[in-house]
C-alpha cells in the first residue's frame, strides 16, 4: 500500500518543505504558477535587470506545463508536466529569489539540486502524460503574463488536491537515482 498523501497549501513555508522526503505523495492546494522554457528565459532576464516579476516568487510553486486549449466550460484542457531539464539553466536563480517548489517530470541537474538544498526548495514529479487526469485538479486558470507565448504563457492556476510525488527533497535525496538503484538488476 502507498502511504497516505500529505496535504499542503501554497505558498509553502520552509517548514512545509523541510518535512518532505523523496517518495512522499503530496496533494497541493492553492495557487500554482505555470512557466515553460520561453517564460523562464524572460523571468530570469527580468531578475537580472532588476525589474519586477509578474508574480511574487516567495514561497511559490512553479508548474512546468503548457496546457492544451480549454474546451468550452473548462478552465484548461489536458495539463500534464513537461520535461524539466530544459528549465535547469534558469531554476537556480528563481530558487535564490524565493521559489519554494517546482513541478515537472524527469531528473534535475546538480546545480538545481544544490540550489534546492541550500535555499530549501523541493522538486515534485507529476505524472507525465496524465494530462486529462491532472486537469481534474485545476479549478481555474488565468493568463497573467506573456499571452503572446500561447501555451507557454504564464498562468495562475487554482488547484485542489493536485497529486505529485516528491522527487528531490531539501536533504539531497533524489528519487530518480534511488528508485532506479533499488530496482536495477545487473546482468
Amino acid at each position: 500500500m502507498m502511504p497516505d498523501a500529505i496535504v499542503l497549501h501554497t505558498p509553502l513555508s520552509e517548514h512545509d518543505v523541510t518535512s518532505l522526503t523523496i517518495g512522499d505523495r503530496v496533494l497541493l492546494n492553492g495557487v500554482l504558477y505555470t512557466a515553460r522554457d520561453a517564460a523562464h528565459k524572460r523571468l530570469v532576464e527580468l531578475l537580472q535587470s532588476g525589474g519586477p516579476l509578474p508574480f511574487d516568487l516567495s514561497g511559490q510553486v512553479i508548474y512546468y506545463v503548457g496546457p492544451s486549449p480549454a474546451p468550452p466550460g473548462r478552465p484548461v484542457g489536458a495539463a500534464g508536466p513537461t520535461t524539466s531539464y530544459r528549465m535547469d539553466a534558469y531554476a537556480p536563480m528563481l530558487i535564490r529569489h524565493g521559489l519554494r517548489g517546482m513541478i515537472g517530470k524527469g531528473a534535475r541537474n546538480d546545480a538545481v539540486k544544490e540550489a534546492m538544498r541550500q535555499h530549501k526548495a523541493v522538486y515534485f514529479a507529476a505524472i507525465g502524460g496524465a494530462g486529462a487526469l491532472t486537469a481534474r485538479s485545476i479549478l481555474s486558470a488565468e493568463v497573467i503574463a506573456y499571452p503572446e507565448l500561447g501555451p507557454e504563457a504564464v498562468r495562475r492556476l487554482e488547484v485542489k488536491n493536485f497529486p505529485v510525488i516528491v522527487a528531490n527533497d531539501v536533504h539531497g535525496g533524489d528519487l530518480y537515482e534511488e528508485g532506479v538503484r533499488r530496482y536495477a538488476r545487473t546482468a
Binding site: M2, G23, R25, V65, G66, P67, S68, P71, R74, G77, A78, A79, G80, T82, I127, G128, G129, A130, G131, A132, L133, T134, A135, R136, P151, P163, I165, L175, G179
Partner: peptide, 26 residues
C-alpha cells in the same frame, strides 16, 4: 510508486475517452 502511476495512466485514458479531452497536453 510504479503501480500507482500505472493505475493513474489507466484512469487518465478513461477520462480522456469519456470527456473527449486529450490524454496528454502535448
Amino acid at each position: 510508486t510504479g503501480r500507482d502511476i500505472l493505475k493513474r495512466l489507466i484512469e487518465n485514458a478513461q477520462i480522456a475517452r469519456d470527456e473527449k479531452i486529450p490524454m496528454c497536453q502535448d
